[in-house]
Design a protein around this nucleic acid. Structure first.
Length: 282
DNA sequence: GTCCAGGCTCTTT
DNA sequence: AAAGAGCATGGA
């Protein structure tokens, strides 16, 4: 079996990444390894000390997919060093969340995933994504009797009716997913161009999609477009801004300006550490 | 039974 | 521009 071994990796915790609310298709195995489906591939990833082994990945796929997926080209030590000493809350959060990285996932999958995530809970989000993949995605692997399905392409998902989507357990978000899929298939919103846009332009473009507001747009940009300046504002972030930073602004624009000025260009990464910290300590 | 979950859309002021 | 109602569904 193909496998890739990466030596001397630091700032990398499988569990922290899996539980940080940025991905919903990591399956934890009994031994602490994870089975991951992304970009039409299935891999199993194991970590022992500073060594990471990716089973099922060829050298070509590592360069094309996984190196960037796991954000291995970013030096997290440097990023964290720039956060250290700003305030006690962030200091605590970067210690507590040590090993969290920002995954670079597929933009289309993130769009549908975070449309589903709104006003929803994590187990149900996972279940909906699995059902959508089983019904509309390609069967990519069969391991020990278990079937693994890729997340469907826009074209594959476009055959689903609103009623079909409702059967996947997405609730009232069925129409959002349906309309968004149509807009993408018709190229009224061109996903490939979004990655080249500035943060503000990309946000505006994504919000043309049904079910995509400020928060969902920023999650998409942070988790699939390498926009580490995107700063998703949800209920937890509003709470932490109030509790830790005495900031009670309701206006998203004002909050974004604060985040960028205070945390810097990688404020999205700071957001991820703080989000994880407050969510697990309440 | 009620409450809540990484919000968004639509309507009303 | 800002605030409020309503929205499916399942688990606690």
């Amino acid at each position: 079996m193909n496998r890739i071994i990466i030596d001397d990796v630091t700032e990398f915790s499988l569990k922290q990444i899996a539980d940080s609310g940025q991905t919903f298709r990591w399956q934890e195995n009994e031994n602490g390894s994870y089975t991951i489906i992304a970009f039409g591939k299935v891999v199993k990833i194991v970590k022992e000390d500073s060594e990471i082994v990716i089973y099922g990945a060829s050298k070509e796929d590592f360069v094309l997919i996984w190196e960037n997926y796991f954000d291995l080209l970013r030096n997290y030590k440097t990023v964290i060093e720039n956060f250290r000493g700003k305030d006690e809350s962030l200091d605590n959060a970067i210690v507590y969340g040590n090993g969290i990285r920002i995954l670079n996932q597929d933009i289309w999958e993130m769009i549908i995933t975070f449309i589903i995530s709104g006003n929803n809970n994590i187990p149900r989000i996972k279940k909906s994504i699995e059902k959508i993949s089983e019904k509309y995605g390609d069967l990519i692997d069969l391991i020990a009797g278990e079937k693994y399905y890729a997340f469907p392409t826009p074209k594959q998902l476009s055959v689903a009716t609103i009623a079909d989507l409702r059967e996947c357990g997405v609730g009232y978000r069925d129409a959002y997913i349906f309309e968004t899929t149509q807009l993408v298939v018709k190229k009224e919103v061109d996903l490939s161009s979004i990655k080249k846009m500035s943060l503000d332009e990309a946000r505006k473009e994504l919000k043309k999609l049904k079910g995509v507001g400020d928060k969902v747009a920023d999650c998409i940009l942070l988790f699939s477009c390498e926009q580490t300046t995107a700063f998703p504002i949800d209920t937890w972030v509003k709470k932490l801004l109030k509790d830790y930073y005495q900031l009670e602004k309701k206006n998203n624009k004002a909050i974004n300006e604060f985040a960028q000025a205070y945390f810097g260009e990688h404020c999205g990464i700071a957001q991820q550490y703080l989000f994880y910290y407050i969510r697990n300590n309440n």
